[in-house]
Amino acid sequence: MNLRQLEILRAVVQYRTTVGAAERLGMSQPSISNTIRHIETVLGFPLFERVSNRLSPTEEALILLEESEPLFLLRDAVNQRAADLRMGRIGRIRIASTAELSEAVLPRVIADYAREFPRIQISLETRPLDSVLQVVENSVADVAFALSPFERQALDYELIDELRPVVLCDESDPLAKLEVVNPKDLAERPMVGPQVANRIGLMLADSFRARGQDYRPTIETRFMNAAARIVRDGWGVALVDELSAFTAMRPGLVIRPYGPEMHFDLCAAISRTKPPSRQTQRFIKAFRERVAIRLAEVRAESLRPLQG
């Protein structure tokens, strides 16, 4: 007997008529009757007795139904799982990110997403830029979030937003009184910033060079959130991206715009050969919305006049 035949048997037992079973299953009454007769022929014993125009199941029919109940439970579970997948209620998202974004944006996005979709398994890997992109290429991660990534043949980049460089400093620092901070203003200052060995450091060095200045941070860091944290703990000024600066804010610090016109592309990297799942697409959308909110906050802060 196959599952469909068992389903027909169960419906006839439940409704006690072939007409009721046919209505329940969306079949014709003759099809129900023919199926029951076929099952009885194959099995070699009757499944029903007619009593007062109703079908009364035999003991053998009831035993078969009892034994087959786990099959129906399994089918229902599979159907429920398929519905959950279709509605995006279950699944997994493997995320890779550089440290700046793992601190500034992703914790809130992941927390909100996990509350809305509690059955989604989420993993986050924090790595240097090259490694972040490589794990997506190797299908170890579904999406990577990074600043100003290099082009890679196996990846497509979805632009999330453009981040500006800013200066983070103490409110008593002379830089805090400037509407815009230029490379010349940072010359000979105790400055912490991204190392020239990475792409953002090179971009900042180029902006200094274009203004006739040398980019020479007193302290170099691989990740800009670390640079901002050093200033937060009381040393020097930092030249970093907006999100890293805002994440490190505390009373007594201010954010000032950096003068040269430049930006860092904040991108979501996905595989060029493997389309992103609906869960991944939904997470990228949530990430984009959170970035927009955070950037509105940090830009309002950078334009805030110094009190007094």
Rank of each mutant, 00 (worst) to 15 (best):
L47C: 10
T98H: 02
A111R: 14
A141L: 02
L178E: 05
D84M: 13
E289R: 15
R10S: 14
E297Y: 11
F117L: 13
A226K: 13
V140R: 10
S244L: 09
L133R: 06
R24I: 00
R290E: 15
Y258Q: 06
D173Y: 08
T35W: 05
Q307T: 13
P275A: 14
I122M: 15
S148D: 15
R89Q: 15
A296Y: 01
E67F: 14
M262L: 13
L133M: 11
G259L: 04
E60W: 09
A22C: 03
F48V: 06
L253D: 04
E301M: 12
F287T: 11
P190D: 14
R37E: 08
Q80E: 08
N138G: 01
P46R: 14
E151Y: 11
E137T: 14
T35L: 09
S31G: 14
T247A: 13
L85S: 10
R229V: 07
L65K: 09
L6W: 11
G193L: 05
C169N: 05
I255F: 06
I230W: 05
D161P: 01
R278T: 08
V196N: 00
R189C: 00
V192C: 11
M203A: 15
R37C: 00
L178W: 06
A21W: 02
E171Y: 05
L124M: 07
N53S: 06
K177A: 08
V19Q: 10
E162Q: 12
R164V: 05
L6T: 07
P305Y: 01
G252C: 07
S123Q: 12
Y258L: 09
R127M: 11
L133P: 00
R24V: 03
F246M: 08
L124E: 05
K274Q: 11
L202T: 15
V167T: 15
S271K: 11
P194W: 02
E220G: 10
A111V: 07
Q121P: 00
F287A: 06
A99L: 14
E242A: 09
I160D: 03
L306M: 08
R152Y: 07
P257W: 04
V12S: 02
A104E: 05
R209I: 09
C169E: 00
R89G: 02
A144H: 03
K285G: 07
A228Y: 04
P46M: 13
R24E: 10
V166I: 02
S277R: 01
M203H: 00
T126N: 10
E100W: 02
T126C: 05
E242N: 06
Q134H: 13
M262T: 13
A104T: 04
T41Y: 14
E188Y: 01
Q80S: 09
F287G: 01
I219T: 05
A245W: 01
R127L: 15
P190M: 08
R119H: 10
I36D: 00
A176Q: 12
I95A: 04
G193Y: 09
T41Q: 15
E49D: 09
Y113F: 15
R216A: 14
G91W: 12
G26W: 07
V181E: 05
P275N: 11
L295W: 06
G201K: 01
E261W: 09
L133N: 04
L124A: 01
S148E: 12
P70V: 11
L204K: 08
M224S: 14
E66L: 00
L243H: 02
C267I: 11
S302A: 15
A227F: 10
R209D: 00
V136F: 09
A154V: 01
N34C: 01
